[in-house]
Design a protein around this nucleic acid. Structure first.
Lengths: 107, 107
DNA sequence: ACCAATTATCGTAATATTGCAATGTAATTA
DNA sequence: TAATTACATTGCAATATTACGATAATTGGT
């Protein structure tokens, strides 16, 4: 039904899936890459950089912000978005732990 | 439009997003965790383990298979699914590289 | 050949996501 | 204060995802 049965899964499984979903769009990957390389930037930069409409970028930024992956500092009339370092580390170790849990032996 | 403008992004960005999308559902996380801990298992096990219908599990397995994350070996009437070690490593290093690209310094 | 078990596929309904034009809001400048 | 700039939000259309019943397709045993 397009509705995920969240209650069937562990909190960790839901959390991992939610974070993965945050990364599950090339525009959001591109935004994060741009934030990383620019070491902070603003929405209008991104509209130039990617070829998407301002409303669309704003929507993607909101998703990343809601997940806590990025944070926006109001800077006069514009907003300076950047990576949230602590959340970034949290996700990194959560995903890292997941991928490390496979021993490499199989079948 | 619910349609991703793939052409706007780099191959790497699209690849990362596609892999993340594969992990972007708790059922698929649960399937992978189960495959890891069981060191191979079959669909009917998963139907017991998770509380989803057989058709739904089969659909999630197909997605993971299409991405190359898992592989299925026919074993009599049933199928023994397991992690694809080389693809697992590939994803691990791709994602790892992405998360390592952030220096930790910001704003 | 027949039947049961296992998995895949099809069809369909419910919901989610993506994208953008239009509009709203807040700070900035003229 | 009116115009401008920079984002955010709303509303909507197109498409994707999730879930499952029904129904194939394949294999194993009788």
């Amino acid at each position: 039904m397009g509705v995920t049965k969240t209650n069937l899964f562990t909190e960790r499984q839901n959390e991992l899936a939610k974070l993965a979903k945050g990364l599950a769009h090339p525009a959001r990957i591109a935004i994060l890459e741009h934030l990383i390389s620019s070491n902070a930037c603003i929405n209008s930069d991104l509209v130039q950089e990617l070829g998407l409409a301002q409303a669309t970028i704003s929507q993607h930024l909101r998703e990343l912000k809601d997940l806590g992956i990025i944070q926006g500092n109001i800077e006069g009339a514009s907003i300076s978005y950047c990576i949230n370092p602590s959340k970034w580390d949290e996700i990194k170790s959560l995903l890292g732990g997941f991928f490390d849990s496979f021993s490499g032996k199989c079948c």
